[in-house]
Design a protein around this nucleic acid. Structure first.
Length: 591
DNA sequence: GTAGGGTTAG
């Protein structure tokens, strides 16, 4: 008897003589679009499952069938529901399977483990492991890979590394390339480049040999660290070992050089790649375009985009977003908005990043009406505002002095369930201190110190700066001194902030001491340092000392910024004889 | 299992 089901197709309920599935047809690349055809003719097209109801209905139809359908059908079904993100339903169906005594296998259990991680229930994922044992199902490498991927996704790095070590030492099963890739990627993305490299070296000693995926992870980690020499060494190593580099390898290197602004090297590697018949794709071109835009060379970026189109590579939403950001950084909001509207016309949907870029552009230009309008537009969309959107608007409100609205906005943000991150707290601290709300800032700061969450050198720099600006130099200095005791290293900005703090109080000797400390700790004074000190001299009317300092500054290739120039103009206006004390200024002045 | 984008400090 054959019944016709509107969704599942004609033969879905056809009588099935054997439970075993014999053919898997993959019509499309998506994991959900798979047909399972049984010997008997039971034919389920999973692509026709459009919603949870469809899947559950199908489940209840197949559980009652005799003879029972293959376990593969249940695998596909659970995976389909998992793909729809109905995680709790995967679990309840799995429980129902167990209750009905439906046989399970390693695939089913791996899906359940993966599902628990997607639900952010690492503990439950672990609780599946005994089910393997009870049912005599051996752990396979996929089980461990799923566990490891889940642990990294949950940011449980220690647990993941421990599990991996156990896997290697106890030899429960042999880790494969994917296992190494998961662990190495998890470590490299958290800044542990050396540990990632160690694993590559460890692999060489074992049975699992590194392939290009593995090399790419390490090469990319070095590129992200700006250590291009190390990355190139590894590139040469792949060539020597006869592992051909691919487009990902070259894209990582090109991105690394773009971020360092080494455009000649970018060209060199572009040619090398093309000579090897590896052609740049939309990722590669977008990296170059982004690098150019970040340097303010949007016109050059547009040219690269024309070039890629000529080569048959279509720009995508990433590419256009990079160009939008370039225009926003130059304050050319109209151009950015054109691009935004243009891509909509081209049927390319702007994503959360495109929105955030444009919202940030408006905020930086203090156009909060437009920014809020986009925010509300985004709220209606499927890709809701994320933490970056909230941070951007929050910063914008503080920037224009709407402190009350910033507070309300923050509360509103919390009510949507958004979780404040490192940036959020930095923005709040800076916002409070900018408007003299020292108590609010300190109470938040103390809370952050207590929980040790979302706190780092940047938070300390913000607090030190804010305290200095609010006339609390002593307190700022005490926090600065505390840093080293806590094992948190001050960076160049920390020193500049302290130097500025001393200069603001006219304590130039202390400022100079701090400058020396800065140099002792390996930070050369930069343009900001020099400008801070010059402003300090000017504030105290110490013109001749400033003149000496200026000569040193000019010799090191530094120059006055807008604030210092403004200071100087005021000083000269009040006391023109200053000009006679500094002959170099005459030249500058005439210019 | 590998590559591209957005938010904080001097």
């Amino acid at each position: 008897m054959t019944r016709i089901h509107p969704r599942y197709g004609i033969s879905f309920f056809a009588t099935c003589n054997s439970g075993s599935a014999t053919t898997i047809i993959r019509p499309y690349s998506s994991s959900t679009s798979i047909s399972v055809k049984c010997k008997s003719g039971l034919n389920i097209n999973f692509e026709n499952i459009k919603c949870l109801d469809d899947a559950v209905t199908l489940f209840h139809h197949i559980v009652s069938r005799q003879p029972p359908p293959s376990v593969l059908v249940y695998c596909k079904l659970l995976n389909t529901i998992l793909y729809m993100k109905h995680y709790s339903d995967v679990i309840s169906l799995f429980r129902e399977m167990r209750k009905l005594g439906i046989p399970i296998n390693d695939f089913i259990l791996n899906i359940v483990v993966n599902n628990y991680f997607l639900m952010h229930h690492a503990d439950c994922a672990y609780s599946v492991l005994p089910i393997y044992l009870k049912n005599g199902i051996p752990f396979d490498v996929v089980t461990f890979n799923t566990l490891l991927r889940g642990l990294f996704a949950e940011n449980k790095v220690k647990d993941a590394v421990e599990l991996f070590k156990k896997l290697v030492s106890v030899k429960i099963c042999e880790p494969n390339e994917v296992t190494y890739a998961i662990v190495m990627n998890g470590l490299s993305k958290r800044g542990h480049t050396q540990k990632t490299l160690s694993l590559l070296r460890l692999m060489k000693q074992g049975n699992t040999k590194p392939d290009i995926y593995i090399y790419n992870i390490v090469i990319d980690a070095f590129c992200k660290d700006g250590n291009l020499d190390a990355a190139i060494n590894l590139l040469n190593e792949t060539k020597l070992k006869g592992i051909p580099p691919n487009i990902v390898t070259y894209s990582s290197l090109i991105d690394g050089f773009c971020k360092l602004g080494q455009w000649e090297k970018v060209k060199t590697f572009f040619s090398e790649m093309v000579n090897l018949n590896i052609f740049p794709n939309v990722h590669t071109f977008t990296m170059v375009i982004d690098g150019l835009c970040k340097e303010g060379k949007v016109e050059d970026a547009e040219e690269v985009m024309e070039h890629m189109i000529e080569k048959g590579v279509e720009p995508n939403v990433f590419t256009y977003s990079a160009i939008m950001d370039g225009y926003c950084l130059r304050g050319q909001l109209d151009r950015a908005r054109r691009i935004f509207d243009f891509i909509i016309d081209k049927n390319i949907q702007p994503n959360i990043f495109s929105y955030n870029i444009l919202i940030n552009g408006y905020c930086k230009e203090k156009k909060m009406v437009e920014a809020m309008q986009l925010f509300h537009e985004l709220s209606q969309k499927r890709s809701k505002p994320d933490i970056v959107t909230y941070n951007t608007i929050l910063q914008g409100l503080f920037e224009v002095g709407r402190i009350g609205d910033a507070g309300k906005f923050f509360t509103e943000m919390l009510s949507t369930g958004a979780i404040p991150n490192f940036y959020t707290h930095g923005i709040l601290l800076n916002g409070y201190l900018k408007y003299g709300l020292v108590e609010e800032a300190m109470s938040l700061f103390n809370e952050l110190e207590r929980t040790k969450e979302n706190i780092g050198i940047i938070s300390y720099n913000i607090i030190i700066n804010g305290l200095c600006k609010n006339g609390k130099l002593d307190k700022a200095h005490a926090i600065f001194e505390k840093l080293t005791l806590m094992g948190l290293l001050p960076n160049a900005r920390t020193y500049n902030t302290m130097i500025n703090g001393f200069c603001l109080e006219g304590l130039l000797d202390e400022a100079k001491d701090m400058l020396r400390k800065m140099e002792d700790n390996g930070y050369l004074p930069d343009n900001v340092t020099y400008n801070i000190i010059v402003q300090g001299f000017l504030r105290c009317g110490k013109i001749s000392e400033m003149a000496t300092f200026m000569k040193e500054m000019a010799g090191s290739g530094f120059s006055f910024d807008a604030t210092t120039t403004g200071f100087l103009v005021n000083v000269v206006r009040e006391n023109p004889s200053v000009l006679d004390m500094i002959p170099e200024l005459h030249l500058k002045n005439k210019k």
